[in-house]
Design a protein around this nucleic acid. Structure first.
Lengths: 141, 141
DNA sequence: TTTTTTCATTTGTATATACAAACGTTGAAA
DNA sequence: TTTCAACGTTTGTATATACAAATGAAAAAA
């Protein structure tokens, strides 16, 4: 029937998986008070204080305008400080920003455990590898 | 470095892939004037005229409120007619709605070709199968 | 040195999707 | 038969993300 048809469409199955794992990730990062992507952005800023927004966009595979919006929110929350330098905007973690790194790392572990428990650890890794490679190939189109 | 860290996170890689294939799908369905998910919804309504919104939600793995919004838009476009029957809302294709089925099927083929060309047809199928299974398991949590 | 082009960022606007609460209908229990 | 609980849908509101246009700064060309 028609359901089979959907199940054979990578657009459909990937988005189904995306919604499921996004929900799981949001739960896992709850303690940080951040969405998973905001948490990743914080990690990048802590890892390289002064990182520019285009570097963030590259690393997260998101558009610059999206990064502006995300950083806005993290500045509002007092986790990032933005310094404008010429045409660039450089991003530094505040003290509070540094302080949540532990919660973020915990969140990541919780997430990893949660999906590994369901999928199997090795299967999860294998899936991840395939998904990552496919994403890299398709995003170049 | 930290990029490797992201590449090992299924949340991250799946969403990267999701954005890439969503873009590809939007291009492929351009001729229909619909987003891919709207197009899938139309297929369901044509396949089973009178289908209810909760059936649509089930088939598309989306929330009922989302279906309401999608159907609203398709009614506005003159592709679906909604008939309220008691507490249910039944959905029928209009003549114009039926008429775009061909474009939708074409769109699906274009999409399939596009990602199969990049990933390899067999690899694409294999990936799809894994992704579909993982999505089904994770969405039950 | 002035002009033009390129580049990084921001802003305005739009879309897909979700959650929680509200609403109306139906079927079950009293 | 009235009341209540369950159900399907809708509405209000919120989030992540994108695109296109605007802005402002730097680099290149004239």
């Amino acid at each position: 029937m028609i359901d089979d048809f959907f199940d054979n469409c990578l657009y459909f199955t990937v988005n189904k998986l995306s919604r499921a794992i996004t929900k799981m990730a949001e739960d896992s990062f709850k303690k940080t008070g951040l969405s998973p992507t905001h948490a990743f952005l914080m990690m990048l800023v802590i890892d390289k204080p002064g990182i520019s927004q285009s570097e963030l966009a590259d690393a997260l595979h998101l558009k610059p305008s999206t990064i502006t919006r995300f950083v806005d929110k993290l500045v509002e929350k007092g986790l990032i400080e933005r310094k404008t330098e010429g045409k660039r905007s450089l991003n530094f973690p505040t003290e509070n920003g540094e302080a949540i790194l532990k919660d973020i790392k915990d969140g990541w572990k919780i997430l990893y455990r949660a999906y590994s428990d369901v999928l199997g650890e090795e299967e999860g890794k294998a899936l991840n590898k395939l998904v990552n490679e496919a994403g890299s190939k398709l995003e170049k189109q």
